[in-house]
Design a protein around this nucleic acid. Sequence first.
DNA 1: GTCTATAGTTAGATAGAC
DNA 2: GTCTATCTAACTATAGAC
Lengths: 204, 204
Amino acid sequence: MKKNNKQIITEVAFLLSLKNGFNNVSIKEIQKASGFSAGSIYYHFKDKNEILLHMINVYLIENFHEYRDAIKNSNDPFTKKMESIFYHLIGFNKKEFNSSHSLTMNKFNYREYYGLFSSIFHQHPETRPLFYKLHVDSYNFYQELVEEALENNEIKENIDVRSLTIFIHTVLKGYVDLCVFNPDLSIKEIMEVNLKVIEEITKK
Amino acid sequence: MKKNNKQIITEVAFLLSLKNGFNNVSIKEIQKASGFSAGSIYYHFKDKNEILLHMINVYLIENFHEYRDAIKNSNDPFTKKMESIFYHLIGFNKKEFNSSHSLTMNKFNYREYYGLFSSIFHQHPETRPLFYKLHVDSYNFYQELVEEALENNEIKENIDVRSLTIFIHTVLKGYVDLCVFNPDLSIKEIMEVNLKVIEEITKK
DNA sequence: GTCTATAGTTAGATAGAC
DNA sequence: GTCTATCTAACTATAGAC
């Protein structure tokens, strides 16, 4: 899949934004880093805000859909799927996480990633509907997993689907937040603690 | 407690930042909203970044210390203290939340509040140590509550303090995140679901 | 589709009077 | 301690040649 120039500009804007925040990335910087001129950039995007929208769609929305569908289509049991979500949320699948060069975390820096999109949510209120939609999609995804687990008799059958879904949603959100803001706690420990609680309250 | 002019400027900067993000608030806007001139502002602060630091200390750090000490000094049982934290994290104590005019949420808009500080964390990396410190303090606070509950025989005695503390920290983080980003779910429901899980895994 | 050159605006910060 | 006036730098966006 060859990248067209619009995609290159978007990627450059995204990578620069990870470091400095979208508002602190100037068109001049995008010019320098991409090799394209201002005129060229404004040929592809009518203004800077359109770059932002494109960026959100590619790196937030599409990214979610991809990892969601990957997990959906796997044949893993409920607990395994939950574990995969924990890894994916910080940009890893389990194999990568346990490999030796995972420590560099080069693939993507989840700390900057979530920081960037939180900033965008706050400073560009016109983009908020996109975030709300994403959260509804996440909720529905988790609910499907819970319902599937119930059907497959993997968790205790008298559990309330809505409550468990909300709880799982909460824990996943908090887990990401802790990983981002708390450099003292090991990701693995946060993950294991919370997976254990989920197991405890769902076990038959 | 009469406000001095430095405090007024800080408050104005904070309120404007809640709406637009600190980076999008210009000195000119602070001038207009506060009634002070640029010269006056730069008499109190050597540059714009110093306003930011002062703002973080007053509205993030001191705010945490106040609500933490209030809960610490209360004589409530463990579950009651947990409930209070849930309310305080979104800017209410329970009484206010249940009163009729709570719906306006005028006291402070927690959605903008957390959005603002997330943005600052991302876009002003030099301030991150302050955030890390705050998270360690939060962790220690939760741990003290757990230890206290153990001493008072309020929760089952064979529970692992560290695991429970990490779990509580995760849930509280996720709860705030859901409240901020998910306008479809009722705050009360998120709160109740998670309080119930905490109760379930700690009950004797 | 990409370039150069530049218009037009706004930002943070300072000097010096009172 | 507060004011007015102003400087310099940086930004987004556009016009027009190729």
